[in-house]
């Protein structure tokens, strides 16, 4: 070890890593064990039941929830890519003095608890229900707000790493329309940020419970609570799968970020 370094020793690292790693992994391992129980010993009974057509009616809320959450994920990605990202580009290129204001607004949803938001959203969704319908997809408007801070950070990192203004001006001076500038010049350059922003929105949507449950819409999380009352094993299995899926999503995002920073170093 270098003299004067404050880095922890290898032993310290391992001790901390093992103790806290165990604290995090034990509940997950215990949960996994729970899903293998079949009354007497352990088997794959409950995992197999998930794909058994005989249970179709019991699990039907679950499939509705999964379908709704996937639709919501796609709709929220559309909001991120069509509404949030272009506005961020516009602010960067045309209104740089509004950047701080935009950032403040974009990070605001972190400070407003979803449970508070839902109190005010319920009259708004009453109105939406009357005019557009009570379909679960309508939640995407609320979810876009929940995803905003996360998507903002992911996309902003990409914008900071790319010379958006120069690229936009160059393309404009060559006669490209703004639509072309955004779709064919900027989007490919901001690919990693747009990708990361979309994936993190998927994670936000898949984990959301507060708003859906209090506005009486079905999504993955509300259906888990419903199914849990009939078959706790299935609720736990699907929870573990969803957590694993989100973990993979975030691994991919980490990978994208790494690619982004590597590109930045090269240029």
């Amino acid at each position: 070890m270098r003299t004067g370094s404050f880095y922890p020793s290898r032993v310290t690292r391992w001790v901390i890593g093992i103790i806290l790693g165990l604290l995090v992994l034990i509940p997950l391992a215990m949960t996994l064990e729970y899903t293998f129980r079949d009354g007497k010993g352990h088997s794959l009974k409950h995992w197999a039941a998930l794909f058994d057509p005989a249970n179709k009616s019991t699990y039907s809320p679950l499939w509705t929830g999964v379908t709704n959450s996937l639709i919501l994920a796609v709709a929220t990605i559309v909001i991120v890519l069509v509404l949030i990202a272009p506005t961020m580009i516009l602010v960067t290129v045309k209104f740089p003095h509004l950047r701080r204001v935009f950032e403040f607004v974009a990070l605001l949803p972190i400070t407003i608890p979803a449970i508070v938001l839902v109190v005010g959203l319920s009259p708004i969704y009453l109105f939406i229900g009357r005019s557009v319908g009570t379909g679960a997809w309508t939640l995407c408007f609320a979810y876009g707000i929940l995803a905003l801070p996360f998507a903002f950070r992911a996309i902003q990192a990409s914008i900071d790493a790319t010379n958006v203004t120069t690229l936009a001006e160059a393309a404009r001076s060559l006669g490209a329309s703004w639509l072309n500038v955004i779709v064919r010049v900027l989007a490919p350059n901001l690919r990693s940020g747009l990708m990361a922003g979309s994936l993190i929105s998927v994670a936000v949507v898949l984990g959301e419970y507060t708003i859906a449950s209090l506005l009486n819409r079905q999504n993955l999380q509300t259906s888990l609570v419903v199914v849990n009352q009939q078959d706790a094993f299935i609720a736990v299995i699907v929870s573990l799968l969803a957590l694993a899926f989100c973990f993979i999503l975030l691994l991919v995002i980490g990978q994208l970020g790494r690619m982004g920073s590597a590109r930045k170093e090269r240029s």
Binding site: P27, L206, S239
Partner: peptide, 23 residues
Amino acid sequence: VDAAAGVLAQFGGVMLAFVFIAT
């Protein structure tokens, strides 16, 4: 670690409740 921290900190919600009931 970053990915696991992100999932558990921000997207656990209901699922963490189930994990603790099972644990």
